[in-house]
Design a protein around this nucleic acid. Structure first.
Lengths: 220, 220
DNA sequence: TTAATATTTTAGCTTTGTCTAAAATTATTT
DNA sequence: AAATAATTTTAGACAAAGCTAAAATATTAA
């Protein structure tokens, strides 16, 4: 596996994330994501095409090649392991880890990352509930859905919240809803769209439509 | 505290280490240390002078300003804390940590480093026995001397070995001489320059001239 | 104290990654 | 289907950090 510059890595990672939703990524989308200019994107795309990391025909958008995907998964593995380390060991709060991991992820020493993985006990998800690729780049693809879309009686793990205000965190803490907790939906009420959910075997309790809309879960 | 590029940081760090021995650092010395060319050094010196990180008159060599020293100590703090982490937590061996820390040291997030320091229990020396500057840049200046120069009956901590061959490591392991161990010299023999040393209160034992020449110690 | 040698600096070129402005292409409307 | 609008690419510049070769300065030696 070759070595790529920080800039190249940031482009590869951004394309990987953007092409999840859409089929092919456009120049403007990527420029917007990376807070750069379309002309810079085109320059880099030419470079990454030569390195065989992506498929790209002028004016037709681009997507990662299988080699490009492998590289992206390596970067994401590093990013998420560092996020886990920062939250779990250094006691960074949930919303701080991403920014710091953005820098750490570019230190690409395979032995370092594999030993870090081992030290952390081979975690399978990062502090936001996103899956961590293993040393071979394998990743558990479990789609993140909104709690409002979870069918009845289907256990799912809480994997994140979209709003990160202190107000919502206060409420989540009170209701003992934290990342990784296993939830299932028992009832929904059409009147106000509130729902009753249950954590494990504990008694069910009610959460509002507003809260449910901000909670994301993953089914294994 | 401003932010500096990886390249600038490498120059600052190298000057810091070189000016320990000598008073003023020369272009050739620095080029040699950084495996670069004298012309590149001159370019960077002009840049660092403008940033007030060093004192420099053309053809007269250079030394760090007090601001430059502060920056250097920050880099060294990061480097040595990561070295400690790699050795202590990730179980990297002694001679592997330096190279990996060379990359990690450039991630300059103050909160990250201070939390790492706390997580590690505020270690005072790195795995080579070199002191770690604290969050304010204070460093315990204890000179590293060769075991052959240590006066009789003066306890000192083993802080490193110059040779790192497997042969010497085997011998050190056998004699239970590891980094941090407190030693004192009891006797020297002029015939072969061998010496008798003692670890703590244990019985004294003999080490050869060749071995003593490769062991460095620090007096508190 | 000149002359020869070594060191340091300058000048000019290269690469990487960015930018702006203009040209080319694609998409949308009328 | 042509005209307008939006997107994308090209062309040309710039800053950072490096290099080589030549010029300038210091040092050493005769």
């Amino acid at each position: 596996m070759l070595n790529y510059s920080t800039s190249e890595e940031n482009y590869i990672k951004a394309i990987y994330h953007l092409q999840r939703q859409d089929e092919t990524v456009t120049t403007n989308e990527l420029a917007n994501e990376l807070k750069t200019k379309p002309a810079s994107v085109t320059d880099m795309m030419k470079k990454l095409k030569i390195k065989k990391l992506l498929h790209y025909q002028p004016y037709q958008g681009f997507r990662l090649s299988s080699e490009g995907c492998k590289v992206a998964l390596g970067i994401i593995r590093r990013h998420r392991l560092w996020e886990y380390f920062l939250a779990e060991k250094l006691k960074f709060s949930w919303d701080e880890v991403h920014e710091v991991a953005e820098d750490l992820e570019h230190v690409s020493n395979k032995k370092l990352i594999d030993k870090l993985d081992e030290f952390l006990g081979f975690p399978r998800v990062d502090p936001h509930g996103d899956p961590i690729p293993d040393a071979n780049g394998k990743i558990e693809i479990s789609k993140k859905i909104c709690l409002t879309e979870l069918p009845f009686n289907t256990p799912a793990n809480v994997s994140g919240v979209s709003d990160q205000s202190s107000e919502i965190l206060e409420l989540l803490e009170h209701k003992k809803i934290t990342i990784g907790v296993k939830l299932e939906v028992k009832k929904k009420f059409d009147f106000d769209n509130s729902m009753e959910v249950r954590i494990g075997r504990q008694p069910a309790f009610t959460i509002s439509k507003q809260l449910a809309e901000n909670i994301f879960v993953q089914t294994p």
